[in-house]
């Protein structure tokens, strides 16, 4: 928790090439990230990738950083700034690493750069929770889950 990054891993019973396809093809991104329909992806460094979190009604313009099939894929996304193309000052870096393990693929995602993010006024979702007991109960629940997973 002390680090400025979130890292998660999953082992998938498929080749790296297959996982790469799911990770980067418009019809797949639309399903694992977005609302279910294909999303626009310009798969090259500097290209824009449209991310639409389901249920949010918002659109995020991620900037592709590195495309190295089927090993490494990275993009920046400005999760506090809908409709603004991500750059170094407003976004976190999302990196995917694909490693072969026998017939399986270990997929690791790392999102970093939270500490230097400037959240604009009105986009800091949690500031409003203080005055809502319902929101507060939800916060305590989330914290409790986290505390149980991370207790010494």
């Amino acid at each position: 928790m002390a680090e400025d990054r979130v890292e998660r891993t999953v082992v998938i019973a498929a080749t790296r090439e297959r996982v790469w396809e799911v990770l980067t093809k418009p019809e797949h991104i639309g399903r694992w990230f977005g609302p279910g329909t294909p999303t626009a992806v310009d798969l090259q460094p500097g290209g824009v990738m449209v991310l639409e979190p389901p249920g949010s009604g918002e659109r995020y313009l991620a900037r592709v950083v590195t495309v190295d099939p089927p090993h490494y894929f990275a993009y920046r996304w400005a999760s506090a700034y809908p409709d603004v193309v991500a750059d170094e000052t407003n976004s976190t870096l999302v990196e995917f690493r694909l490693n072969s393990e026998d017939a399986m693929t270990r997929l690791t995602v790392c999102e970093s750069g939270f500490a230097s993010l400037k959240i604009p006024a009105g986009r800091e979702h949690f500031s409003s929770y203080e005055s809502h007991s319902e929101g507060w109960t939800e916060i305590v629940r989330i914290l409790a889950d986290y505390a149980e997973r991370n207790a010494p």
Partner: peptide, 10 residues
Amino acid sequence: RLAAIKVLAE
């Protein structure tokens, strides 16, 4: 999201 990627890839 990783769980969804796993299902799609498999």
